[in-house]
Simulated assay, not measured.
Amino acid sequence: LIIMGKQAIDDDSNQTGQMLAALLGWPQGTFAFKVNVGEGSVDVTREVDGGLQMVGLKLPAIVTTDLRLNEPRYASLPNIMKAKKKPLDETSPETLGVDVAPRLKVVKTAEPGGRKAGVKVGSVAELVQKLKVEAGVL
Results as ranks from 00 to 15, higher is better:
residue 1 L to W: 05
residue 2 I to W: 01
residue 2 I to F: 14
residue 4 M to A: 14
residue 4 M to H: 04
residue 6 K to Y: 05
residue 7 Q to R: 15
residue 9 I to M: 11
residue 10 D to Y: 11
residue 11 D to K: 14
residue 11 D to I: 01
residue 13 S to V: 09
residue 15 Q to E: 05
residue 17 G to F: 04
residue 19 M to V: 15
residue 20 L to Q: 02
residue 21 A to P: 06
residue 22 A to S: 13
residue 22 A to W: 00
residue 22 A to V: 06
residue 25 G to R: 13
residue 27 P to G: 13
residue 27 P to R: 14
residue 28 Q to G: 10
residue 29 G to Y: 05
residue 29 G to T: 14
residue 29 G to Q: 12
residue 30 T to E: 02
residue 30 T to M: 07
residue 34 K to Y: 13
residue 37 V to D: 15
residue 39 E to S: 15
residue 40 G to F: 07
residue 41 S to R: 07
residue 42 V to R: 08
residue 43 D to C: 04
residue 46 R to P: 00
residue 47 E to D: 14
residue 47 E to I: 12
residue 49 D to G: 01
residue 50 G to L: 12
residue 52 L to I: 14
residue 55 V to G: 08
residue 55 V to T: 14
residue 55 V to Y: 08
residue 57 L to S: 12
residue 59 L to D: 13
residue 61 A to C: 15
residue 61 A to L: 09
residue 62 I to P: 03
residue 62 I to V: 15
residue 63 V to I: 15
residue 63 V to R: 00
residue 65 T to G: 01
residue 66 D to H: 12
residue 68 R to C: 02
residue 71 E to S: 04
residue 73 R to T: 10
residue 76 S to F: 04
residue 77 L to A: 09
residue 77 L to D: 09
residue 78 P to N: 07
residue 80 I to S: 02
residue 80 I to Q: 02
residue 80 I to D: 00
residue 81 M to P: 01
residue 82 K to T: 01
residue 82 K to G: 01
residue 83 A to I: 01
residue 84 K to N: 01
residue 84 K to P: 01
residue 85 K to H: 08
residue 86 K to N: 01
residue 87 P to A: 12
residue 88 L to P: 00
residue 88 L to G: 02
residue 89 D to Q: 13
residue 91 T to R: 10
residue 92 S to G: 11
residue 95 T to S: 14
residue 95 T to V: 03
residue 96 L to Q: 06
residue 97 G to M: 05
residue 99 D to I: 00
residue 100 V to W: 09
residue 102 P to C: 09
residue 103 R to Q: 13
residue 105 K to V: 10
residue 106 V to F: 04
residue 107 V to C: 00
residue 108 K to R: 13
residue 109 T to M: 06
residue 109 T to V: 13
residue 110 A to S: 09
residue 110 A to T: 07
residue 110 A to Q: 11
residue 112 P to E: 03
residue 114 G to D: 12
residue 114 G to V: 06
residue 115 R to F: 09
residue 115 R to H: 06
residue 116 K to Y: 03
residue 117 A to L: 03
residue 120 K to S: 06
residue 120 K to F: 03
residue 121 V to L: 09
residue 124 V to K: 11
residue 124 V to W: 07
residue 124 V to D: 04
residue 124 V to F: 06
residue 125 A to R: 09
residue 128 V to I: 14
residue 130 K to S: 03
residue 131 L to V: 10
residue 136 G to Y: 03
residue 137 V to M: 03
residue 138 L to P: 01
residue 138 L to C: 05
